[in-house]
Design a binder for these strands. Structure first.
Lengths: 221, 221
DNA sequence: TCGATAGTGTAAGGTGCCTTACATGACCTA
DNA sequence: TAGGTCATGTAAGGCACCTTACACTATCGA
């Protein structure tokens, strides 16, 4: 199995294609890799480009004039993002940073027209993926409008520990603050309140959830 | 020209179809109308349904447990929304209310599969429309995270007066508050500060922009 | 082993805006 | 033209969270 195309998952926008079709697209488009932490797209890069994320996760965020950061989305493997007017895709003031080591397929506008828009099923998958991001973003907006910092933080911890494990690791307090639109100091204080209440255990870059049920109640008052 | 199909605009997701194809879809799907103010979708309505908005505007919003309202999106004629898993569309906890008198095409899941997904170009237009809503929502999220109430309000006024005119009318202070995720009293006070600074003129359900330039500076500090 | 850097702890002070409470004027309908 | 509802004005009080400031510990590379 070619390394270029070895990343097909059930979430992939290509999952309706045959292996042959995927192979063809894989041969004719550019693949690149990005190491953890690399900022590979900035608002100044105005060129039309669509990234298909084959492996890893990518964080999309914006910066305020004062340098504050808000994460607008996290892209999982199999999905896509970029600056592509024909898909209504835009990166206005948005940065893209590799959260893990990533493998990306980079498509130009003509690539998109040739390989994506010509396959009806892929166009539908694009719409499906966008719809999911939209729902996610709408919920984030709702949370910002309705919920306190403790509620948003509890909500985030539960989401990050979604894969079975009770341990949330690899995130600094700064990371958590940027994800919920708050500040590092406030997050530290709130986490310590959670710890004091027996909801979590805190280690360096690792948080253990002790009482999911009560965390749920904090998250949804 | 049949009244059923007389609403095709350059923004319509059907704009790539021939008149014949549009006629066919128009004959075979259900059209309804909603008068101004009518709430025609609520979270309890769990059925899969996609609304194509042919005329008027629709407001999508969510309510907090305490009854506070946040507008998550405003749909313009030619676009669509609803509960439709195959398009990644969801109305989780979302209400839909007709802002103006509206004409809507209501599609079931099989309608969507037959008329929308079978036309590649339409699927692309769906993705395009979703992309635009996503960008809009991301910007709203950014505003909530970064900007003060005065900045968000100034930003909203400029957006509402986008169609040439300097008069924003038909919105109560309550409406404005819900659009920016704030409170009626705060909006009234902030508007009066704007008025005091010579930025706007206030009448009942009407605001006249006097100094767009300085409003821009308030909106983007 | 040391210095630098990244990550975390903590506390005091300020303020934006939420929250409540109530008053007044505009409009609408009977 | 009276009564009711809608829209707006205003003001005091409080608190969540921002903001600043600084100290401490862990980690890592030189």
């Amino acid at each position: 199995m070619s390394s270029k195309i070895g990343y097909l998952s059930s979430q992939d926008i290509f999952r309706d294609l045959t292996q042959d079709e995927i192979d063809t697209i894989g041969r004719l488009t550019t693949m690149t890799t990005c190491t953890h932490g690399k900022v590979f797209y900035q608002p100044e890069d105005r060129s039309e480009v669509l990234f298909l994320l084959k492996k890893g996760r990518v964080q999309l965020y914006r910066l305020s004039p004062g340098g504050k950061k808000i994460v607008t989305g996290v892209i999982e493997a199999g999905s896509f993002f970029g600056e592509m007017a024909i898909l209504g895709q835009g990166m206005h003031r948005t940065f893209a940073e590799a959260v893990d080591d990533c493998v990306l397929c980079v498509m130009s506008r003509s690539d998109v027209e040739r390989y994506l828009l010509s396959h009806p099923k892929i166009a539908v998958r694009l719409a499906e993926a966008l719809g999911k991001r939209l729902i996610e973003t709408e919920s984030r907006l709702e949370d910002m409008a309705f919920k306190s910092v403790p509620a948003r933080l509890a909500s985030l911890l539960l989401r990050l520990a979604h894969n079975g494990s009770d341990v949330v690791e690899g995130h600094t307090h700064q990371d958590l603050a940027e994800a919920i639109g708050s500040y590092r100091e406030t997050v530290t204080q709130t986490l310590n309140e959670f710890k004091h209440d027996g909801l979590i255990e805190i280690e360096r870059k690792a948080i253990t959830l002790l009482d999911r049920e009560r965390l749920e109640r904090v998250a949804n008052p």
